Amino acid sequence: MSTYYAPKGGLPGQDQLLTDRAIFTDAYAVIPKGTMRDITTSFLPFWEDTRLWVIARPMTGFAETFSQYIMEVAPGGGSDRPETDARAQAVLFVVEGAISLSVNGDTHVLEPGGYAYLPPNSGWTLRNTGDAPARFHWIRKAYQAVDGLDMPDVLILNEQDIAPIPMPDTDGKWATTRFVDPSDLRHDMHVTVVTFEPGGVIPFLETHVMEHGLYVLEGKAAYRLNNDWVEVEAGDFMWLRAFCPQACYAGGPGKFRYLLYKDVNRHAPLGL
């Protein structure tokens, strides 16, 4: 059974030293779990009894395609008008508690591992009908429509029901849980769960056009980002601009798992 790290807020004591692993460069950022405190939360219009940590947002000259929030919804909280941008598609991924998601006249209860893909103008609403806080990732991207391709369908899934697909020639030490068929070109973003067994590696410096958001769900690892090796653990977030070299070594003792965003399946824009 998988476990997922979720921030709880709070503040360090006044007796704590200012020592942490936060890094922001022109190629990547590391936002460690220790920065997700009460004073770094935000709020959104039309959301009740809800706060959030904004861990990625489009920035000129950095990662430009997506935003990513960690939402914390108190019992009874939620929204009947969650999205105010008609262009925005969404992926929700639940890490703690449960949410009641209504879309297209149907209501779904998403528990930890629950995944929802919501195309633009889905008219979805969300409530926490339980008795404990619910925490989930909300990844947003402006959908790039293509003439001749239909809009993607709503998807309601759970990671626990999907078998991870091992990467070739890795003896099963590196695998990806895919919620969307990679050959479905209607989709212009993929959100997956990547799992490394102890000792698993990315054995070369990946350098590619896709932007990334990587939220560590479980475990720890050494990650190579551009020219640097950084140590990351459950609750940390890595934010990579296009072409930032990256690799990974998962030393154990347990599995290393992260939620991964990337933009896919579209031409590179040529000018404004």
Rank of each mutant, 00 (worst) to 15 (best):
T3I: 11
T3C: 06
T3W: 15
T3Y: 15
Y5W: 05
P7W: 02
G9L: 08
G9A: 11
P12M: 02
D15Q: 13
Q16W: 05
Q16Y: 07
L17T: 07
L18D: 15
D20W: 07
R21T: 14
I23K: 13
F24A: 12
T25Q: 11
D26R: 13
D26F: 08
D26E: 14
I31K: 11
I31E: 12
I31H: 05
K33Q: 12
G34A: 05
M36Y: 05
I39T: 10
T41I: 01
S42H: 08
S42V: 12
P45E: 04
W47M: 01
W47D: 03
W47E: 02
W47N: 00
E48L: 00
E48T: 01
D49L: 04
V54C: 11
V54G: 10
A56S: 12
A56G: 00
G61T: 07
Y69L: 10
E72F: 08
V73Y: 03
G76K: 05
G76P: 09
G77Q: 07
E83G: 03
A86C: 11
A88F: 14
Q89E: 15
V94N: 09
V95S: 13
G97V: 10
S102R: 08
N104A: 13
G105R: 00
D106R: 15
D106A: 09
T107G: 02
V109D: 03
G114I: 05
G114E: 09
A116N: 02
Y117I: 01
N121M: 14
L126G: 00
R127Y: 01
T129F: 04
T129D: 15
T129I: 09
D131F: 06
F136V: 02
W138K: 07
W138H: 03
I139Q: 02
A142M: 09
A142T: 06
Q144K: 15
D150Q: 12
V154P: 08
L155I: 07
Q160Y: 11
D161G: 01
I162L: 13
I162H: 05
I162S: 11
M167R: 12
P168K: 13
W174S: 05
A175V: 09
F179V: 03
V180P: 00
H187E: 04
T192E: 03
V194A: 12
F196C: 09
P198H: 02
V201S: 06
L205Y: 12
H208Q: 15
V209G: 03
M210T: 06
H212F: 01
Y215T: 09
E218H: 10
A222C: 04
R224V: 05
R224F: 05
N226H: 15
N227H: 08
N227P: 04
D228V: 07
D228G: 02
W229E: 11
V230E: 13
V230G: 01
E231Y: 08
V232Y: 00
E233M: 07
D236I: 10
M238W: 13
M238Q: 13
W239S: 14
W239K: 03
P245A: 10
Q246R: 08
A247E: 11
C248N: 14
C248A: 14
A250G: 13
A250P: 07
G252I: 03
P253Q: 05
G254M: 10
G254F: 04
G254A: 09
G254E: 15
F256E: 04
F256V: 06
L259W: 14
L259Q: 12
K262F: 06
K262I: 10
D263V: 01
D263R: 10
V264P: 14
P269N: 01
P269S: 01
G271K: 04
G271E: 07
L272D: 09
